[in-house]
């Protein structure tokens, strides 16, 4: 069995389940080997470590992220495709004491919701946006996404993504880093490095807790179902191919708080 499958399998074991996960909704509804489960595991651990479960308001988009509508033992709202960022922005502005998280896919964040991401980042909204990048529109059956790699075949680019016609894959964190103030936190993590991803998510949430600024984490995530790959090639794609284009690391880290 590959490493990828093991991660998912252990995710389902009781002792390893983050406290903030809702037990009644496990095992979760994602496909076997799906990256969403891992990203939400890292998020669950980050919420546990920061002790904020009772203050979290979690918003999920329409995309496979919608399957997380009852994932956490936290108040959760499912928004419309692409609209989670403004819904969460509204909640945060109305209740600044809540820790407000918007969770979405690359289609939700970089295509239909791109204007919301750009404007929330520009306004330095004190929210945390987490985006799972799986290089396709998974929920609708594997169409081209803003993040589809050059030459990659999908249902709507059956002959491979042609960057002459469709441009380069979106570099989300790079874009957000360029338009945010210095007290924003921006990073790209990957399900292939869960410890690092958890740390990034903790920093992103801490930045909101400190009331400093916008925080954004993209996570490289697998979609074996629509990639039509077995466990090994799925893992290779996440670990080797994706980071060639999507560089993993922190892009913007606020200076330490004074005093």
């Amino acid at each position: 069995m590959s490493e990828c499958m093991e991660v998912t399998a252990t995710t389902l074991l009781e002792p390893k389940m983050p406290r903030s996960w809702r037990r009644a909704s496990k095992p979760h509804k994602f496909c076997p080997g799906c990256g969403h489960g891992d990203v939400l595991k890292a998020l669950g651990t980050a919420i546990d470590d920061l002790g904020i479960q009772d203050r979290v308001v979690f918003g999920c988009d329409i995309g496979c992220s919608l399957l997380a509508w009852d994932f956490f033992e936290c108040d959760t709202v499912q928004a419309h495709h692409g609209r989670t960022t403004p819904v969460i922005t509204g909640i945060k502005r109305a209740r600044p004491d809540r820790i407000c998280i918007a969770y979405m896919g690359d289609g939700g964040g970089y295509a239909i919701g791109a204007q919301h991401l750009v404007n929330a980042a520009t306004r330095n909204e004190r929210i945390t946006v987490i985006l799972a990048n799986n290089t396709n529109y998974a929920m609708t059956g594997g169409q081209m996404a803003p993040t589809t790699l050059p030459g990659q075949k999908t249902e709507t680019c059956p002959y491979g993504r042609d960057i002459e016609a469709m441009g380069n894959p979106t570099l989300g964190p790079e874009m957000v880093a360029a338009i945010t103030k210095e007290n924003a936190y921006v990073a790209r993590g990957t399900m292939a490095n869960m410890r690092q991803l958890t740390t990034m998510l903790k920093k992103a949430l801490q930045n909101q807790i400190d009331g400093r600024g916008f925080s954004f984490v993209e996570a490289l995530a697998s979609c074996p179902t629509n990639w039509r790959m077995n466990a090994k090639s799925t893992w290779d794609f996440v670990e080797k191919e994706m980071p060639n284009y999507f560089k993993v690391g922190e892009l913007k880290v606020p200076a330490p708080k004074e005093g």
Binding site: G107, A111, I112, Y137, T140, G141, Q143, E155, T156
Partner: peptide, 8 residues
């Protein structure tokens, strides 16, 4: 177009 079920 933009993907949406059931017209995909």
């Amino acid at each position: 177009g933009y993907p949406i079920t059931p017209q995909n």
